[in-house]
């Protein structure tokens, strides 16, 4: 037999993609030609070998690395969805109820945008400053009001700030290098603090705005302290934090935020009060 099957024909045969019209001729040839049958067997063996190779495995700890890269991106997506939903919801109302309503809608939208920005900043500050996981609103809470997001973000921010202040107050005044470490954390917290204060002012939450204003002052002082700070200057800073009852006030507001978060969650979990999910 002279007209042997081509390699292409054998490959198509292996994958069951021989054109219907050519299939009988091919089968007949394979049955009668030892050379082509041998080539066909070799092809099967090679492709079976490919199948038998175990898959390439990822390095140890791969899952942890995936999550570390993924989680911040999920939060960014969450914030974008939150802002979009706020815009759609409020924008829809404005269209239905008349143009005058857009006047009242604007500050709420500004608050939603501000909250979105502060959540991102707070998240980044938390990542950089202490490396711990930040408790951000879960996706199912994405349809929550901007105020609710503000409460969650402020509570989280106050917890982190409180931790930093406690460490600073308890630091030995001779350990000046401790201040250098806290300065980096303070710098990260300042930006988040400022955004939250502005958002709290816009939403008319005076108590939160006041404590954040006081915190901002102290955080700035820590962040901008000179590199050659003396023991006395560190002592002064610690006593100001203590005498102004700053830590106590932070604890009170943080506790209140946790309580509000719980209330918000419970309210959000009641089906009748659920916000529409777009």
């Amino acid at each position: 037999m002279t007209n042997h099957l081509s390699e292409e024909e054998l490959i198509l045969h292996y994958y069951g993609e021989t054109p219907r019209a050519a299939a009988p001729r091919l089968a007949e040839h394979l049955a009668s030609c030892g050379e082509c049958e041998a080539a066909n067997t070799r092809l099967h063996r090679v492709l079976t070998l490919v199948d038998s190779a175990p898959p390439v495995d990822a390095r140890p700890g791969f899952e942890r690395d995936v999550w570390a890269r993924l989680e911040p991106q999920l939060d960014e997506g969450l914030v974008r969805r939150l802002v979009r939903r706020s815009a759609v919801r409020e924008g829809g109302s404005a269209t239905r109820e008349g143009g005058w309503r857009t006047f009242f809608w604007a500050p709420q939208w500004a608050l939603a945008g501000g909250v979105a920005a502060l959540v991102v900043v707070a998240f980044m500050a938390g990542r950089i400053s202490n490396g711990t996981d930040v408790v951000l609103p879960a996706p199912q809470r994405a349809a929550a009001s901007p105020e609710r997001v503000l409460h969650a973000a402020v509570g989280d921010h106050l917890d982190r700030t409180q931790m930093m202040l406690v460490e600073l107050v308890n630091a030995d005044t001779d350990q000046l290098d401790q201040l250098a470490g806290e300065q980096a954390r303070a710098s990260d917290l300042v930006a988040a603090n400022r955004l939250m204060r502005q958002s709290a002012e816009q939403s008319g939450d005076g108590a939160i705005a006041d404590i954040l204003e006081d915190l901002e002052r102290v955080l700035l002082e820590i962040a901008n302290a000179p590199a050659d700070v003396t023991s006395n200057e560190l002592s002064d800073l610690k006593s100001r934090i203590t005498t102004e009852d700053l830590l106590f006030r932070v604890r009170v507001i943080a506790s209140e935020m946790r309580q509000r978060n719980r209330t918000d969650r419970e309210a959000g979990d009641r089906p009748a009060q659920r916000l529409p999910v777009s």
Binding site: P55, V56, D57, A58, F62, E63, V66
Partner: peptide
């Protein structure tokens, strides 16, 4: 993740 890594690889 490990499974889809093998697939992607």
């Amino acid at each position: 993740s490990r499974y889809i890594y093998s697939l992607a690889h």
